[in-house]
Design a binder for these strands. Structure first.
Lengths: 118, 118
DNA sequence: CGTCCGTGTAGAAGACTGTCAATATAGGCA
DNA sequence: TGCCTATATTGACAGTCTTCTACACGGACG
């Protein structure tokens, strides 16, 4: 799920402010941030990440919103394709959890390095 | 330019993974990330941030892309309304620079706190 | 084996976004 | 004053995104 078509899964860790990013890096970073550009997905990620045990199952997530199941399913897929979360089926339920490394990569990208005093 | 209608300018610093964000916080965070969800804007931000002196003027930015002036102007406005950059006119040219605090807030939001070993 | 429940997929409507050409504004300079 | 350069605004078009309803899949359980 992280070697093939899943854009945004392996982002270079250099901060944006350190040096001009090239076109490919910019596309990857933008794709990852696009996954976080919707309030529902931000809340989903936060709900999953802060869930006791670090996992949440879908029905639990759906009931936190005033949206239909397919809509939540769509947003979960966007987050998963961006490499920010992953999931596993256990019997009837599907459990989701965050991929900490992906969040930390994005966090690093936004870091502002101490500016050299030119 | 950063107190009034500019949504996304003052984001709560708590990491998403620490506790479930409320609806308003999620909207603010998502709005900020939406500004970073386009490859052109990611490159613009990186170009401005890594420019010698921390400032860049528009013509310099336009010539880095295969896009028209109005398009770059549009993207700069999106970044500015998100509070990520700010600008000032000096004679004929307009200079842009990044707002480090805004980037650092977003970076903190993506931090994954050490999970309590429940 | 059949039914129910949880989850995902398909297709469509409406809103939003990125881009451009054309035009406007604002400042320097002759 | 009048022109030229630099930047922003407007309006339009094509593409994408969010959301829904309707339906399909897959496991549990009687």
């Amino acid at each position: 799920m992280s070697k093939h078509g899943c854009s945004g899964a392996d982002i270079c860790c250099a901060p944006l402010a350190a040096a001009p990013v090239d076109v490919d890096q910019a596309a990857e970073v933008a794709a990852a941030f696009k996954a976080l550009s919707d309030p529902v997905r931000v809340r989903l990620l936060s709900l999953i990440a802060s869930h006791p045990g670090g996992e949440a199952y879908v029905n639990n997530l759906i009931s936190a919103f005033d949206l239909t199941g397919p809509t939540i399913s769509h947003h979960l897929r966007v987050l998963r394709q961006a490499g920010l979360i992953d999931c596993e089926r256990r019997g009837t339920w599907v459990f989701y959890w965050v991929v900490p490394a992906a969040l930390e990569r994005l966090s690093t990208v936004l870091t502002v390095p101490a500016r050299s005093p030119s």
